[in-house]
Amino acid sequence: MPPRRIITGRSQEPRKRFVEELRLLRSRKGDSLRKLGEVLGWDWSLFGKMESGETLGGPEVVQALDQHYGTPGLLLTLWELAMADPTQFKERYRRYMILEAEAVSLWHYAVSVLPGLLQTKGYARAVLAAGGITGDELTQQVEARIGRRGLLEGDNAPPFRTILSEAVLRTPLEDAEAWREQLEHLLSMSERQRVMIQVLPFAAGPHALSNTDTMFLRGTDGRTVAWVETGYSGELVQETAAVERLQLRYDLARDLALSPAESRKFIMRMLEEASCDPST
Rank of each mutant, 00 (worst) to 15 (best):
V127K: 09
L128P: 07
L128A: 04
L128F: 05
A130L: 08
G132N: 01
D136A: 15
D136H: 10
D136P: 05
E137T: 14
E137W: 01
Q140T: 12
Q141S: 10
E143L: 10
R145T: 09
R145C: 01
I146G: 04
I146D: 02
G147I: 00
R148F: 06
R149E: 06
G150W: 03
G150S: 09
L152R: 10
G154P: 06
A157Q: 03
P158R: 07
P158Q: 01
P158K: 02
F160S: 07
R161H: 13
T162A: 11
S165L: 04
E166Y: 03
A167M: 00
L169T: 01
R170W: 04
E174K: 14
D175S: 11
D175M: 08
D175K: 07
A176K: 14
A176N: 04
E177K: 12
W179F: 09
W179D: 02
R180A: 02
R180D: 03
R180K: 11
R180Y: 04
L183W: 02
E184V: 00
S188W: 08
S188H: 07
S188E: 12
M189K: 08
S190E: 00
S190Q: 06
S190C: 01
R194H: 13
R194E: 07
V195M: 06
V195H: 08
V195K: 07
V195E: 02
M196H: 09
I197Q: 03
V199G: 09
V199W: 04
L200Q: 01
L200F: 06
L200D: 01
P201Y: 00
F202G: 14
F202W: 13
F202S: 12
F202R: 13
F202A: 08
A203C: 00
A203T: 14
A204S: 15
A204H: 12
A204Q: 03
P206Q: 06
L209P: 11
N211S: 15
N211Y: 13
T212D: 10
T212M: 12
D213G: 13
T214V: 15
T214D: 03
L217H: 07
R218F: 04
G219N: 08
G219H: 07
T220S: 15
T220V: 14
D221T: 12
G222M: 02
R223G: 06
V225S: 06
W227N: 06
W227F: 14
V228N: 12
E229W: 01
T230M: 09
G231C: 01
Y232M: 15
S233Q: 12
S233D: 14
G234K: 03
G234S: 11
L236Q: 12
V237I: 14
V237D: 02
Q238T: 15
Q238F: 03
Q238D: 13
Q238N: 10
E239H: 15
A241K: 07
A241I: 00
V243D: 09
V243F: 05
R245S: 02
L246H: 05
L246A: 01
Q247F: 00
Q247M: 12
L248G: 10
R249E: 13
Y250S: 15
Y250E: 10
D251P: 01
